[in-house]
């Protein structure tokens, strides 16, 4: 098999894994903290805690993860037909 496909397959699996972790984080905080009675919510920067962790922190962490992946994990390959790896 084309060695570039090995890299591509690995990176697609990373994408799936990231989406699964992202979903668990998003769901866990939203409904874990958000299902409490409203009176028991605590607030961070004015936002209810479930929203702050699930949507704001979740987004920031995912963005950082993507940056780390791009910097250290994903590999550059040539997209052209005859080209080898650079």
């Amino acid at each position: 098999m084309d060695p570039r496909f090995k890299i591509a397959h690995r990176e697609a699996l990373i994408g799936v894994a990231l989406a699964i972790v992202h979903f668990i984080w998003w769901f866990g905080f939203a409904y874990g903290l958000g299902s409490k009675p409203v009176e028991e919510y605590s607030y961070i920067l004015g936002f209810p805690d479930w929203f702050f962790y699930s949507c704001i922190m979740g987004f920031i962490l995912v963005a950082i993860t993507v940056i780390v992946l791009v910097k250290f994990v994903l590999k550059d390959v040539s997209l052209e037909e005859e080209g080898d790896e650079r």
Binding site: F5, A8, H9, E11, I14, G15, A19, V66, V77, L79
Partner: peptide, 20 residues
């Protein structure tokens, strides 16, 4: 916020193999 996932998912899944 479920739409954030599109930001990385489409390109990572179709990714290099689709472009090649």
């Amino acid at each position: 916020m479920t739409q954030v996932v599109t930001g990385y998912f489409v390109l990572l899944i179709l990714g290099k193999k689709f472009a090649i």
